[in-house]
Simulated assay, not measured.
Amino acid sequence: MAPGASAGEVFGLIRGGLAETRADLGRLTGLSRTAVTLRVDQLVDRGLVVETAAGGSTGGRPPTRLVFNADGGVVLAAALGASRSQLAVCDLSGRALATATVEWADDPAVMLAAVADSFDRLLAGRRPLRGIGVSVPGTVEAGTTRSVSPSAWVDVDIPAFFAERYGVPVRVDNDVNALALAEHRAHPDIDDLLVIKVSTGIGAGIISGGGLRRGAMGAAGEIGHTKVVDGGGAVCRCGGVDCLEAVAGGWALVRELTALGRKVGTALDVAELARADDPDALRLVRAAGRHLGGVVAAAVNLLNPAMIIVGGDLARAYEPLVAGMRELIYQSAAATATRDLRIEPGTLTDGGTRTGCAVMVLDDVLSAASVNAAVAGRPVAVG
């Protein structure tokens, strides 16, 4: 790091575990002892860093260790989903301190008000609140972070709603991108990762070169509306025909099983029925996996991921779902792209997307630029 490192850059070294003492900071940044002291004091004053005893003293001032203060504030996280929505208040490491759920409402005003009321209860005097991360089950337009789908949520300004109420930075993304961030955090050694979420709908989160790829309009990974060649004319919720989601999404399997007399209402119900070895559920889940594998094979050729992670409610029936996926991926994708490819279940089966919401906002509000703005007393963008 070049001499003249800012307080935000110094904080990044401490938060990342690369520097534990003032001497470490001086060595890594080239800053003078006075400059190191100034930056550390600024971070301590803002509750981002604490100094603790590092061990026994050999005389003079006792040695101290610099530690990222995960208790120096909280963030709120909300993973909004059509089947259920999961909320949490988290410390600055992303650890959930308290959680809650809210029922989905098609009316955005009703839904956001319910989330805000639950946020108020979760905060319960915890301060300072440093940011809010929200995910939605649909496309979020790049740049504006307005929701583009589902249909009732088109052009909903979610950041403005929460920023007006809480006055902190608000970050919004789609649910699969949030899950991809959480899974990448759980697999820090994998820089090329494809995360597939199979729940009520279907989507992909793309980690390439260590970073999340959203695309020009924020629609990267919207594989659920890719047309399949053998969809049988299935009508999709989007109004199209033979979309992947219309033959392999949780809502489509619920429709099929209901017609066969099964009492299912959600993708999770379908997965549990398959896990109980119901023959129709197993048949449909395997078929869904084959449809999914045919689409994902093209993504494997295009992106060459090192790992595919399969998550979401329908992935609770992992074996039959992924058996179908593997069959088509290894049949259709290039041998060089699949030679070392790993396909694994999600490591964050419950609350993974919610964790991703926390990671999303923490990476923003604890970035060097945001910390520098806070140290300088400048306002941080709240939308």
Rank of each mutant, 00 (worst) to 15 (best):
residue 25 L to P: 11
residue 78 A to M: 06
residue 198 V to Q: 10
residue 333 A to E: 02
residue 132 I to D: 02
residue 80 L to I: 14
residue 156 V to G: 00
residue 64 T to W: 07
residue 271 A to Y: 15
residue 29 T to Q: 02
residue 196 I to N: 04
residue 160 A to I: 02
residue 28 L to R: 14
residue 363 D to G: 14
residue 6 S to W: 05
residue 289 G to N: 09
residue 221 G to L: 13
residue 179 L to N: 05
residue 298 A to R: 12
residue 279 P to I: 13
residue 176 V to F: 11
residue 78 A to L: 03
residue 366 L to D: 05
residue 192 D to P: 12
residue 108 P to C: 15
residue 104 W to D: 05
residue 289 G to Q: 04
residue 314 L to R: 15
residue 246 A to N: 05
residue 209 G to N: 10
residue 300 V to K: 13
residue 21 T to K: 01
residue 339 R to M: 07
residue 323 A to D: 06
residue 229 V to C: 10
residue 349 T to N: 08
residue 365 V to F: 08
residue 74 V to T: 05
residue 11 F to H: 01
residue 253 L to Q: 08
residue 259 A to Q: 09
residue 115 V to A: 03
residue 177 N to L: 06
residue 257 L to F: 09
residue 149 S to W: 02
residue 278 D to K: 08
residue 188 P to E: 05
residue 313 D to N: 14
residue 155 D to G: 01
residue 224 G to T: 07
residue 89 V to E: 06
residue 347 T to R: 15
residue 188 P to D: 04
residue 72 G to A: 12
residue 302 L to K: 03
residue 307 M to T: 15
residue 87 L to E: 02
residue 318 Y to M: 09
residue 151 S to G: 06
residue 11 F to S: 00
residue 183 E to Y: 10
residue 338 T to D: 04
residue 275 R to C: 15
residue 111 M to Q: 12
residue 59 G to T: 10
residue 377 G to H: 08
residue 285 V to P: 08
residue 321 L to W: 09
residue 149 S to P: 00
residue 328 L to M: 15
residue 195 V to T: 11
residue 165 R to V: 03
residue 243 C to G: 12
residue 177 N to C: 13
residue 133 G to H: 04
residue 153 W to D: 02
residue 139 T to P: 02
residue 117 D to N: 09
residue 354 R to P: 02
residue 333 A to L: 11
residue 335 A to D: 03
residue 326 R to F: 13
residue 53 A to L: 11
residue 164 E to Y: 01
residue 312 G to W: 05
residue 367 S to C: 04
residue 197 K to P: 01
residue 8 G to E: 00
residue 137 P to S: 04
residue 141 E to N: 13
residue 36 V to I: 07
residue 16 G to Y: 13
residue 257 L to Y: 09
residue 218 G to V: 00
residue 239 G to R: 06
residue 142 A to Q: 08
residue 1 M to Q: 07
residue 381 A to W: 14
residue 66 L to P: 10
residue 96 A to N: 09
residue 123 L to N: 03
residue 69 N to Q: 06
residue 361 V to L: 08
residue 165 R to G: 07
residue 263 K to W: 05
residue 158 I to Y: 00
residue 118 S to M: 03
residue 180 A to C: 09
residue 335 A to Q: 06
residue 81 G to R: 11
residue 12 G to K: 09
residue 369 A to H: 08
residue 146 R to G: 00
residue 231 G to L: 01
residue 341 L to P: 12
residue 314 L to I: 03
residue 161 F to I: 10
residue 234 A to G: 14
residue 288 A to W: 09
residue 32 S to L: 01
